[in-house]
């Protein structure tokens, strides 16, 4: 008796959730719209914001319907499956923020064969695509981080760099650019050790910064983070040791995440691109392409500015970098 009751509850749990889930994401709309799908790396406000930009574009430009699906974990295999499912679903264009660019190529190829256009974001190496969208080049972004850090640590002393994962291509190219730029521009500064890995987790960035403080003592003057949770983690460690005036933390992050650190001075400045703008610009470009028009180098794209097309990569202009500080972080919704 009780057993059937439990089973009933379980079934009741499943059925409405099916309905609920089915109803939640499927937008209504006529069949004549272009179907564009955004596939993020995982569920994250960054991609939500990109999607908001896309929705805004869809509304303002018309003729486009946008949806979003994200893998439950930041895993390339799941993303491949998602792309393949979208092919089956028969959308018109897919915009992916790849976890692993290489892994998606065959899926992209299949999509293209099925007449679906593929686009990427944050993935300059992708091949089977129409365009990749970048707010700016990795090199420029890395140099921006280094400029910020150098200024904050008064152009001298030792520093360390975090990457989210050794396998994160963009993070590594930022760090490469940072180190090269420092060697070129700031001779009094020096790298204390090889890049550290944060696992894209605040607590790991915190623990490793703590350890670095102990290991290098007074020599450590600066920390650059690559994943959005690195500066908050490093900032926490700095704040806890009361070293706000001695160690500068900069890097990639969001205003919302870095806010507390910016407030107490443990984080000096964080940089980011505006995901809504990118989303808007991407939809603008994708719509052009879907309508069979060409997008030329130097076009002024809303959201991206004057674009620079290299091979298949569309770089926005340098105005795309947002440097967020204590004074302005509250102006941003992400």
């Amino acid at each position: 008796m009780k057993r059937t009751l439990i089973m009933l509850v379980m079934v009741l749990l499943i059925v409405p959730s099916l309905v609920f889930a089915a109803g939640s994401k499927e937008g209504s709309g006529g069949e004549d719209l272009f179907d564009i799908v955004l596939i993020g790396k995982l569920e994250h406000p960054m991609f939500d914001n990109t999607f908001i930009g896309m929705q805004k574009a869809a509304k303002e430009l018309g003729g486009v319907k946008v949806t979003m699906v994200n893998p439950a974990e930041a895993d390339a295999a799941q993303q491949v499956a998602l792309v393949e499912d979208q092919i089956a679903k028969g959308v018109d264009a897919i915009l992916v923020v790849p976890n692993d660019p290489g892994a998606l190529e065959p899926a992209f190829k299949k999509a293209n064969d099925a007449g679906i256009l593929t686009f990427t974001h944050e993935s300059v190496l992708s091949k089977n695509i129409t365009f990749d969208f970048e707010a700016f080049s990795n090199e420029v972004f890395g140099q921006n981080h280094m400029d910020n850090l150098a200024k904050a640590m008064n152009y001298e002393g030792g520093y360390i760099c975090f990457v989210g994962n050794l396998t994160a291509v963009t993070h590594n190219s930022w760090v490469d650019a940072e180190i090269a730029w420092q060697k070129e521009k700031y001779p009094k500064m020096y790298l204390l050790r090889d890049r550290l890995v944060s696992d894209e987790r605040t607590e790991v960035a915190y623990e490793k910064t703590m350890e670095a403080i102990k290991t290098y003592g007074d020599k450590l003057k600066g920390v650059i983070g690559s994943s959005a949770s690195d500066p908050p983690g490093a900032g926490l460690a700095v704040a806890e040791k009361g070293l706000q005036d001695k160690i500068a933390v900069v890097g990639t992050s969001l205003g919302s995440m870095a806010g507390p650190g910016l407030d107490d001075g443990s984080i000096k400045v964080v940089s980011i691109w505006d995901p809504q703008k990118i989303g808007y610009g991407a939809v603008w470009v994708m719509k052009q392409v879907l309508e069979g028009k060409t997008v030329a180098d130097g076009t002024d794209v809303p959201g991206l500015g004057k674009i620079d097309i290299q091979d298949k990569v569309i770089y926005g202009d340098k105005s795309g970098i947002l440097n967020i500080t204590k004074d302005n972080y509250k102006n941003f919704t992400f």
């Binding site: 569920e43 915190y206 926490l236």
Partner: peptide
């Protein structure tokens, strides 16, 4: 966790 890292994150603990 919230005390130490001052944020709520649906993945960090779970991930």
């Amino acid at each position: 966790y919230v005390v130490m890292f001052r944020h709520v994150h649906p993945f960090n603990m779970m991930n």
